[in-house]
Amino acid sequence: MISLSNISKTYNKGQITALKHISFSVDHGELFGLIGPDGAGKTTLFRILTTLLFADEGDATVNGFDVVHDYKQIRNCVGYMPGKFSLYQDLTVEENLNFFATIFGTTIRENYALVKDIYQQIEPFKNRMAGKLSGGMKQKLGLCCALIHKPDVLFLDEPTTGVDVVSRREFWEMLARLKKQGITIVVSTPYMDEANRCDRIALMQKGVVLSIDDPANMIKDFPQKLYAIKASNSFQLLQDVRNYSGVDSCFAFGDALHVTFRDSSDQNMMAYLYTKAYTDVSMEIITPSIEDCFIHLLKD
């Protein structure tokens, strides 16, 4: 459905590298996640795929169309929700949706079935100005606007950034339903915990794809044993664990520390911690999360 080969992009006459030799492809009906912090190049990638920017080198196609030559065809078949997209603040919810429907040459009625689920949640506020909606509502309205012309591919640039946990979960549930209707979705997010919602993910940092795989495989490929160490004074624990010579990496992770050892047979950590007079310390092997994988990849 989407394929990129060797895409590179720089800004400011080559001074800032946004993307370095990116190649991957997304299958039809796939929910594909671009995961990475700000500055990873996610937005640039979206803009190249939506025909808004030219890549410096490399080729890309969307739905079989070339992003440079066939930009008109691509613009007819994709839905796009930019990261800083904030709708028309001074138009009502309904006016916004109507406007975007018309711009894409359709009507709300024609494709209502597709957006019904989502639109019903914001319908009580349809006469409210979009500027007066909360983050979660805006995001739903934005999704409706991007969907209203029944696109084959949906590009969503950081739709969940700055939105609370409840709205984020609802949003991902909506995406799962859209996926069932056969729409190919490419979504970016800085929240690593959302990776598991995707069929496949690309971990990105500073214009480079660190890894592409489905989340389960990525976790399976985590090369070391990962331990969670807990104690009530976690800040002190962090200092002490880091001072232990056998530790390879140690990061705070929620209420625990995630620790890997240089030598996987190292068994002396608990003994060391007891000498530090911890009474409530515990240590166990855990399954890594995508965030652990990302941190691991950043280390290399």
Binding site: G36, P37, D38, T161, G162, P190, M192, Q205, F235, L238, F251, A252, E291, F294, I295, L298
Partner: peptide, 20 residues
């Protein structure tokens, strides 16, 4: 106010070290 928005996981943790 949301000091770590959009920051990579390693830097986010370094930031929390500063907070501590």
């Amino acid at each position: 106010d949301e000091p770590t928005g959009g920051v990579d996981p390693v830097t986010r943790r370094q930031f929390w070290d500063l907070i501590h």
